[in-house]
Simulated assay, not measured.
Amino acid sequence: MIVAFLNQKGGVGKTTLALNLAALWADQGRRVTVLDADPQASALDWAQARSQAGLSRAFGVVGLPRETLHQEVPDLARGADHLVIDGPPRVAPLLRSALLAADLVIVPVQPSPLDGWASAEMLRLLDEARLYRPTLRARFVLNRCAARTVIARETQEALAAQDTGALRGTVGQRVLFAQAMACGQTVAELEPDGPAAAEIAAVGAEIEALDR
């Protein structure tokens, strides 16, 4: 399965979700490769921080911020159970290439009106990509949300009402995610029995179920 984490809006947590989910799947015995398609190279920075800390490699991270991504992905995907694409914000040609490369697009959205407006543009790009990839699937996922807030509930309901739909699982706004990213680790490594790891596990299982 080729899973792309995409959103034109920056700061929605694409890289954090991509890396934590990739680590989850790798820990479950899947062969996982992460493609860093963002010119900011945050996933590669995370992998470097991990190496400098002397930690074992959890999975391969490859930098590929090129508009030919969709042409190169099939060869890279042959050796992986899950190929995870960490997509770019606001780089239209790169984003379109990632859309054409993916089997499934996960669109992280924060609970705010601004994110809701940005997701309308993602829906348009998804429709455009389906002209060439009719089988392309997509789901929104609510990320960085405070639990039991009205705006989180309303955003989740609005996303679920879209034709694209939304994952049932959500991911909270937790300092642990930033701490893990800074030191090249994952939330499951820092707090294996904590709520952040549980949220990632639930979202990961839901994504894998979409491929069955």
Rank of each mutant, 00 (worst) to 15 (best):
Trp117Leu: 14
Met1Tyr: 11
Thr33Gln: 10
Thr16Gln: 02
Leu6Val: 00
Asn143Thr: 11
Thr170Asn: 02
Val175His: 14
Pro39Val: 11
Pro113Lys: 08
Glu121Gly: 09
His82Met: 14
Asp193Thr: 06
Arg153Gln: 13
Leu142Ser: 01
Pro108Cys: 09
Ile207Val: 15
Ala101Leu: 14
Ser51Leu: 14
Thr68Pro: 03
Gln156Phe: 01
Trp117Val: 10
Ala188Lys: 12
Asp81Ser: 12
Gln162His: 08
Gly79Phe: 02
Arg30Ala: 14
Leu159Lys: 11
Arg212Phe: 12
Thr33Pro: 00
Gln71Ala: 14
Arg133Trp: 04
Leu17Arg: 07
Glu67Gly: 12
Lys14Ser: 09
Gly165Thr: 14
Glu121Phe: 12
Glu128Trp: 15
Gly169Ser: 15
Phe59Pro: 01
Phe59Lys: 00
Arg153Val: 01
Leu94Ile: 10
Ser97Arg: 06
Leu35Gly: 03
Gln8Thr: 06
Ala43Thr: 07
Gln185Trp: 02
Leu125Ser: 03
Arg139Pro: 03
Thr186Phe: 09
Gly165Trp: 13
Ala92Trp: 04
Phe140Ile: 03
Thr186Asn: 13
Asn7Phe: 02
Gly29Tyr: 13
Leu19Trp: 11
Arg133Ala: 10
Trp25Ile: 07
Gly87Lys: 01
Ala197Ile: 07
Val73Thr: 12
Arg168Gly: 11
Ala138Trp: 03
Gly29Glu: 08
Asp86Gly: 02
Ala58Asn: 02
Phe177Trp: 10
Arg30Asn: 08
Thr155Gly: 04
Pro88Leu: 03
Gly13Trp: 05
Gly54Ile: 08
Leu159Ser: 11
Asn143Lys: 04
Ala166Val: 07
Arg57Trp: 06
Ala166Asp: 06
Lys9Cys: 04
Trp117Met: 10
Glu154Gly: 06
Leu210Glu: 13
Gly204Glu: 12
Glu189Gln: 15
Ala160Gln: 15
Pro74Gln: 09
Ala53His: 02
Val62Met: 10
